[in-house]
């Protein structure tokens, strides 16, 4: 084929431009560490990477939720522990009071020790978070868990004013865990304690009076029943913690495999890039030399 003289220059220009474009792209990739600079380089891989990023974002949030939820559950557990310690002390007092050799003065003194324990249980049940919301009122977080009405007769002064709704926290795709504990049983127990306190504070009270003994026995029953219920709730909280830990482990292993997949899909293989860079550079140098040699050839130089 006949070749026009300017064709050498045109070919050289095209070759150099293509080589520069390739070099520029490989340099950009090496600088950023990304295998693809634009979705169009590999639309399928870009869709897959984007989906992995979406899943990672959700997993991150689930893991944050789990951490926050575990903190909240631990706090609840501590409150319940404190409350059950108070209840045990109240029970000890009842056991002591039931002793028939107690004088009425002894019993009066015991009754006065009961009041601070009741107050402590009352305040713990009405515990509030940093923003003033009641922890144990179910989903009625703006109303106190237990309301105290001094005007009412003993035995009905404490009322549970929360509800037993469960607040659910999202901890996985379609997985929720309860975040709250409702203390609906405490009010009945406090009323019972209040009643026995009134009975025991009566001047010249005798523990051998069958009515007094019955009141003490009923209180012990109430304390036992409530303690059992609270211990059950503490156990449930522990169980939730275990479930959350398992979920957390699952999330982190899925996240790890996602990250590995994202690396394989989107991370530049530097060895491969370096080899390509070398190849392109050599190609440019060879083209330049060839052009240099060819462009020196001219018949005008010899005639």
């Amino acid at each position: 084929m006949r070749i026009a003289s300017t064709q050498y220059h045109a070919t050289m220009n095209t070759a150099l431009q293509n080589a520069s474009a390739r070099l520029e792209l490989i340099l950009q990739k090496m600088a950023s560490g990304q295998k693809y600079m634009l979705p169009s380089e590999n639309p399928i891989a870009s869709v897959r990477m984007s989906r992995l990023a979406r899943e990672e974002a959700t997993l991150d949030q689930y893991r944050e939720n789990i951490a926050a939820l575990r903190e909240r559950l631990t706090r609840n557990e501590q409150y319940l522990d404190a409350m059950s310690a108070d209840m045990l002390s109240a029970r000890d007092l009842m056991v002591w009071a039931a002793d028939g050799s107690n004088t009425s003065a002894d019993v009066n003194a015991m009754a006065s020790s009961l009041q601070p324990l009741m107050d402590s249980i009352f305040f713990t049940a009405n515990a509030r978070d940093a923003e003033g919301r009641y922890e144990f009122s179910g989903s009625a977080t703006s109303t106190p868990t237990i309301t105290y009405d001094p005007a009412a007769p003993a035995g009905s002064r404490y009322t549970y004013t929360g509800n037993t709704d469960v607040q659910l926290v999202v901890v996985g795709n379609g997985v929720t865990q309860p975040a709250n504990v409702a203390l609906n049983e405490i009010a009945a127990m406090l009323n019972q304690l209040d009643e026995v306190r009134v009975v025991l504070t009566t001047p010249n009270v005798s523990v051998n009076d069958p009515a007094v003994r019955a009141a003490i026995a009923a209180t012990m029953d109430s304390l036992d029943g409530t303690l059992e219920s609270i211990t059950g709730k503490i156990a449930t909280l522990g169980g939730s913690q275990n479930i959350l830990m398992t979920l957390e482990e699952n999330h982190s292993s899925v996240s790890l495999s996602n990250k590995q997949a994202a690396l394989v899909l989107g991370q530049l293989d530097y060895a491969d890039a370096a080899v390509k860079l070398n190849g392109y550079t050599t190609a440019v140098q060879a083209t330049q030399r060839a052009y240099g040699a060819v462009s020196k050839l001219s018949l005008f130089d010899v005639i």
Binding site: E64, N65, A68, R72, D129, R133, L168, V169, V170, A179
Partner: peptide, 11 residues
């Protein structure tokens, strides 16, 4: 994520 985070403490 913000909605999910709010589920820990909706109020």
């Amino acid at each position: 994520s913000a909605l999910n985070a709010a589920s820990v403490d909706p109020t």
